[in-house]
Nucleic acid binder design. Structure first.
Length: 183
DNA sequence: TCCCCGATTAACT
DNA sequence: GTTAATCGGGGAG
């Protein structure tokens, strides 16, 4: 089994962790089905001073995991329908995370588009608020594993999707030309 | 308490 | 390109 990332990998700004997560693996074990595995191909960063971030107005019951230790999973419900997966970054009290937007299905996932888009990725990995706060470094339910390190020119940045504030920040990253990215 | 609207998606025209 | 689905968070009163 490939190594996981150490806690310190996540104790950094989301704008650094987001591109570094491209090409890495998301793994999930459920009570019944097979192990799920996918390769991350698209991410977005949300920072503490970022008007588009849930953490912008401080800690609340919903987003408190964002203000906890790095390397944990933040799961929230959007539009009353979809659960999105985020990786908490930066140190305790800062409020920063990386949204996982798309991945290449590998093991235990049927269908071309099941991981294309944050809502579908959450559904494919059977995420809901019960997964909020899971430890991605030392937990045994959902975690991240190291994949190949990508060359800088294999990564491209662009504007974030679906937000109405801080739209000028080019904080979405994806693997250039990858067939599994969203949209 | 009320009310608006969102880090989306699928199913329309 | 447009819109319904669906519901909880959090600001306003």
């Amino acid at each position: 089994m490939p190594p996981r990332f150490p806690r310190g990998f996540f104790d950094a700004p989301a704008i650094e962790v987001a591109p570094a997560l491209l090409g890495q693996y998301l793994v999930r074990v459920t009570g019944d089905g097979p192990e799920l595995r996918a390769r991350i191909v698209e991410t977005e960063a949300y920072e503490p001073d970022d008007g588009a971030s849930h953490s912008f107005r401080g800690s609340t019951p919903r987003n408190r995991v964002m203000f906890g230790p790095p390397g944990h999973l933040y799961v929230y419900l959007v539009y009353g329908l979809h659960h999105c997966l985020n990786v908490v970054t930066r140190s305790v009290g800062e409020g920063s995370a990386v949204l996982l937007r798309a991945a290449e299905p590998l093991d235990g996932l049927a269908g071309r588009d099941v991981c294309r888009g944050p809502g579908r990725l959450g559904k494919a990995f059977r995420a809901d608020r019960r997964l909020d706060g899971q430890d991605l470094v030392a937990g045994s339910t959902i975690w991240l594993e190291r994949g190949a390190r990508l060359a800088p020119d294999a990564i491209e940045a662009g504007p974030r999707i679906g937000i109405t504030r801080a739209i000028e920040r080019p904080w979405r990253w994806r693997i250039a030309g990858d067939p599994w990215v969203s949209r």
